[in-house]
Each structure stands twice: as C-alpha cells, then as structure tokens.
Simulated scan of single mutants.
Amino acid sequence: MNTSKMPLHFNGSLPSVPWNETAVYSSVDFFHKPDVAIIALYVVVLTASLSANTLLIFIVIKFQYMRSVTNIFLVNLSVADLLVTLFCMPVQIAKSVTLLWYFGEVTCKTVNFLQGVAVASSVFTITAMSVDRYLAITQSLRQPWMPSRRGACILLAFLWFLSLVIFVPLLFVAAVEREMVPVLARSKNGSVVWMQRSIEFCTETWPDSIKKELFGAFSFVLVYAVPGCIVVISYSLMGRRLCSVLPPFDQTEGSANSQQRLRLVRERKRVAWILLLLAVLFALCWLPYNILQLLVDVNAVKADSVFSVLPYTLLLGHANSAINPIVYCLMTRNFRRSLRKLICQDPDARFTSKIQHV
C-alpha cells in the first residue's frame, strides 16, 4: 500500500563527469514539490491521533473499572491506530515533500507491511465488536453474553495473526527501485555538462500483473468487503431487536428488577450506537482509498490518472486513526469522567461500574 510513483526511463548515452570533479549540480526539482496542504493536515491529524489514542490506552490501564471487554477491543483499535500514526503518517509527510525515497529498503518494506496490518487489524476489531454487541443484546438477559477478558485477548491475538498473514506478500514485493536521471552539472573548469544521477523510489515489484491484481482483489474482499457485510448484518439484526416493541425480558417480573434490566438494555443500546458510528466512520474514511487502490491494482485505471488524488484519500483514511478515540471518548460517560478525574484530580468524583460496557 504505497503511493504510486511515476516511472522514469531515459534512452541514449549522456556525457558524464566524475562526482568528485563536480563543483555544483542541479537538483531533481521535479520530485521536490512540497504539498503544503497535505503536510499541514497530516501534522494536525498525527498530533491528534497520537494524543487521543495514547490517552485512551492510559485511561483504560489506569482505572480498573474501565477494563471491560468492549474497552479491551477499543485499546486494541488504538494500538492499531498508533501503528498507523507512528510508522505510516511520517512517511506520508515525507512523500508530500518529495517523491524520492531516502529511508532504505527495510523501511520501505516495513511501512508498506505495517500499514496493511494496522488497517486490517482495525477492520477485524470493529467487526469483532459488532458481533460482540449483537450477541450481548440479542441473548437473553437471564443468561447474558459475557465474554471473558482472556477470551477477548485470545481472539484479538488471532486477528493480529490473521492480519500479519494476509499482508506477508508485501514484505517480498515492496522494494526500493533505482532510476538513472540526467542532471545538469558544472565541473571545476566551469563547463556545464549532462551527467546521470541515481534516485530511489519505494514501490511494489510484482512478478507479473496477474499476481498484483489477485492480491489487490483478495485483500479488498477479505479486509473490506467481507467484514463490512458482517458489520452491516450484525447492526441490522441488533437494530431490529432494539427497536422491537417489547424489551427482551419478562414483563411479569418485579418492578425493581424490570427497571434495572431496562436500564441495562438502554446502556447496551447506547454503546451499540456509538460502536455503529465508529464502524460507519471507518468505512467512509477508508472507502475512497480502497476503491482507488483496487482500480489501480486491477489496471482498471492508470496510476498516473489518480496520482494527485490518491494522497488525499490516504490522508482521509489515516484521519480515522484520530477520529476513533476522539468520538468514543467524547460520547462515553465513563471516559469523560475518567478524563476529568485524571486532569482535575477531583477527589469528589464518583465512578460507578454497575453498568459496564459489556
């Protein structure tokens, strides 16, 4: 998953001068055109994402009552978002300054691989949360769905493993490609001559176009289409249950017990809507980039035709890493109270874990 490069090919021989005899030489200005708008937006997104995700993880670790299964899923989502923030966003900022690659072969492979893994882990986590919410709401409240923290951690470990396996091919095809370009140089004796300079790009070198198309289609289906369908189905069934006329418990039971269960249903409904919002925002943020990348991978469109648009669609996808923790923290009472306690050190603040995010 890397921004497309514009290939350069020069034919014919050019007179050359040894580098040690060159007083000055022209830079390859064509590849150094900073996109100020992209850079400014990335700085804002990176700062917000780093701050919000770190804060969310810290709050869950610090306050024991915040360690519910739902919040464990959210911490995992924040870890994936931090991977994108720390490894992918700085590289995209550098690409907005110059198309040339200065970070070496290992970084080229690592960034491409980690971006795919982090995005896949985020998708799978959101999918797991949607199924968890569906089971929690649709199961009888007499025997509520209560997955253990250990079970949630095992599931998340499996999802990370699956994400790693899916994008292993990128470790083999991501590579630094070198091109020779002519530059104008001035030698010590004052004469101006053409010479060749080696420049580098981080790109994907597939054995053939068929494998590239298959991988593009495979990753799109497995990481975006199938999880998206599961999320839609889960929340559709969940919404039908929540919007039913009768609440999902026995009306003949005592009034106090019924009121307590009704409050639990309302809390679950509120959490379900928040998680649905996170899923919708994720889908909207990553849809433009996934569609464009799929079209490029299957050769439906030329990479050059979307060259100027692709960085902005990738920025929108990366912005989701900042949106996730901000939305959840702002819309969740326990997070707001925990944040207030953390900042203000209010000894009178009272927290309750009667209604947990299960």
Results as ranks from 00 to 15, higher is better:
residue 78 S to E: 00
residue 141 L to V: 04
residue 143 Q to Y: 12
residue 142 R to T: 00
residue 105 E to F: 07
residue 89 M to H: 11
residue 90 P to V: 02
residue 109 K to F: 12
residue 88 C to H: 12
residue 113 F to E: 07
residue 123 V to S: 15
residue 114 L to M: 12
residue 86 L to R: 06
residue 103 F to Q: 12
residue 81 D to K: 12
residue 149 R to A: 14
residue 140 S to D: 12
residue 144 P to M: 09
residue 83 L to Q: 06
residue 134 Y to I: 03
residue 130 S to V: 05
residue 82 L to M: 05
residue 80 A to V: 01
residue 85 T to D: 08
residue 97 V to Q: 11
residue 136 A to T: 05
residue 95 K to S: 15
residue 114 L to V: 06
residue 109 K to M: 15
residue 101 W to P: 08
residue 92 Q to K: 13
residue 85 T to L: 10
residue 137 I to D: 01
residue 127 T to R: 10
residue 82 L to F: 00
residue 78 S to M: 01
residue 96 S to M: 12
residue 128 A to E: 04
residue 102 Y to T: 03
residue 114 L to H: 05
residue 78 S to P: 01
residue 94 A to Y: 10
residue 92 Q to W: 15
residue 136 A to E: 04
residue 87 F to T: 07
residue 125 T to G: 02
residue 118 A to H: 05
residue 116 G to A: 13
residue 115 Q to L: 15
residue 115 Q to K: 15
residue 147 P to Y: 00
residue 133 R to I: 01
residue 149 R to T: 05
residue 133 R to P: 02
residue 122 S to F: 01
residue 133 R to W: 04
residue 123 V to I: 08
residue 80 A to F: 02
residue 92 Q to D: 14
residue 107 T to G: 09
residue 84 V to C: 12
residue 135 L to H: 05
residue 129 M to G: 03
residue 114 L to P: 04
residue 86 L to P: 04
residue 138 T to M: 14
residue 138 T to K: 14
residue 115 Q to N: 14
residue 124 F to L: 10
residue 145 W to R: 11
residue 117 V to K: 05
residue 130 S to E: 09
residue 144 P to R: 12
residue 128 A to F: 00
residue 82 L to A: 02
residue 90 P to D: 08
residue 124 F to A: 04
residue 105 E to V: 04
residue 130 S to P: 09
residue 138 T to V: 09
residue 139 Q to D: 12
residue 95 K to P: 09
residue 143 Q to T: 07
residue 85 T to M: 09
residue 112 N to G: 13
residue 121 S to V: 03
residue 135 L to W: 06
residue 140 S to L: 09
residue 125 T to L: 03
residue 133 R to H: 06
residue 134 Y to A: 10
residue 105 E to D: 14
residue 145 W to H: 13
residue 121 S to P: 00
residue 134 Y to M: 14
residue 99 L to M: 12
residue 118 A to P: 04
residue 103 F to Y: 12
residue 113 F to I: 04
residue 90 P to H: 06
residue 131 V to H: 00
residue 117 V to D: 02
residue 98 T to V: 03
residue 147 P to V: 00
residue 123 V to M: 15
residue 91 V to A: 14
residue 121 S to G: 06
residue 148 S to I: 05
residue 81 D to V: 00
residue 87 F to N: 08
residue 89 M to T: 06
residue 107 T to R: 15
residue 114 L to D: 03
residue 79 V to P: 03
residue 84 V to K: 10
residue 135 L to F: 07
